[in-house]
Amino acid sequence: MNPATVLEDRATLARVRGRLLGLGYRLTGTWADAEDAADEALARLVALGPGRAPDNPEAWLTTVATRLCLDRLRRRRNETYVGSWLPEPVDTALLPEETAERRDGLRIAMLLAYEQLGPNERAALVLREAYALPYEEIAGVLDAPAATVRQWASRARRRLDTDLRPPGRAPNELIERLVGAVLSGDLDATIAVLTADARVISDSDGRVNAALRDIVGARKCAWFMIKGAEQTGGAIAPVEVNGEPALAMVTRGILRVAQLAVTDGRVDRVYFHCNPVKLTRLPLPEDLPVPT
């Protein structure tokens, strides 16, 4: 494909950029980094002079965007972050058009599991499983032998299937049970919906008032959620984030978004997104009193 076709045809450019965004989001866990990497890769393609255009522009863009994302990922891991870190939640409508199976890799729980992998393992797995690239092509992207890339991807998949296995999607009926119990202030009913070692993870980077350490245990988590709901004054609304149901709420003038994940039919994880920097790409209802 001629580079001009990628850059000048709107439909092709939208498709290619969407693919790069999906790649970047899987590799970094933040939409901002994904956008930066995608746009910089496209800008570099534009900057190539006559005679320097790649034979396969999409493969070239994939290589450049991947390396840019890995640079951002490594740099971020050397930075100080206050409290727990969670992937950036985004409006489902922003996600690239993919099969349901591939979109499962864009859930917050899965992105958080990716975060526990080494950068090379993460990239090898994403390029192989989400984009079906041959190991030889991934080897060129990561500048490593194909045998090593195969080992990275295999090790990453093995870890995700065992010690890093992410909790599953929360069915609507379980969400409704938990929300009903929390809003009614019923501590026992709330505990009954949670696993014994349930965990509430709050991401704020110290920018707003939030728990800096994970809250662990069904009773503590239930108490935390009930008290938090009391502070909303009813300012709670359902939203869809990363292809899953979520709840947007305003407590003491602060926007928060909560998502659930389950293990063995009970809520195992509650992700509280509180960092305002990460809450700019969400489909919020107009009647929710969101702070400006």
Rank of each mutant, 00 (worst) to 15 (best):
N209C: 11
R165L: 12
P167M: 02
G234P: 04
R155I: 07
A218K: 02
I201S: 06
G185D: 04
A210K: 06
A196Q: 12
V257P: 15
I215M: 00
N242R: 05
A153H: 03
I191G: 08
I226R: 05
V241W: 00
M249W: 09
R199A: 10
R169Q: 12
E176Y: 02
A261S: 13
E176G: 09
G206K: 00
V193M: 08
Q259R: 03
G228I: 05
K227D: 15
A192G: 08
G217N: 00
G228K: 05
R207Y: 07
S204E: 05
V241Q: 00
M225P: 06
G185F: 00
W152G: 08
E240A: 05
S204N: 11
L194R: 06
Q231S: 15
R165S: 14
E173S: 14
P171R: 10
G185H: 02
G234R: 01
A237L: 04
V241R: 01
A261F: 04
K220S: 11
P245R: 12
A181F: 08
A237P: 05
V193L: 04
A229R: 05
R169D: 13
V200M: 03
A153S: 15
A198F: 00
K220G: 01
M225W: 07
G180H: 04
L187F: 02
T232C: 03
R252V: 11
E230L: 12
G217M: 00
R207T: 09
A170E: 13
L183H: 14
A170T: 15
V250Q: 12
I175D: 12
V182H: 04
V257M: 07
V257Q: 08
A237V: 01
A210N: 08
I254R: 13
A237H: 04
T162Y: 03
L260P: 07
W223N: 12
E244R: 11
P171N: 11
E173V: 10
R256L: 12
G253D: 11
A229N: 10
G217W: 00
A181K: 06
E244G: 06
V262G: 09
A235G: 11
A192C: 08
L260H: 07
M225A: 13
V179H: 15
P171C: 09
P171V: 10
A198Q: 02
I226Q: 07
V193F: 04
R157D: 13
T251C: 09
V200I: 13
G234Y: 01
E176R: 13
V193A: 15
V182C: 04
Q259E: 14
V216I: 13
M249R: 14
E230K: 11
E176S: 12
L255C: 10
V182W: 01
I191K: 10
W152S: 10
I226E: 09
L247P: 02
D205G: 04
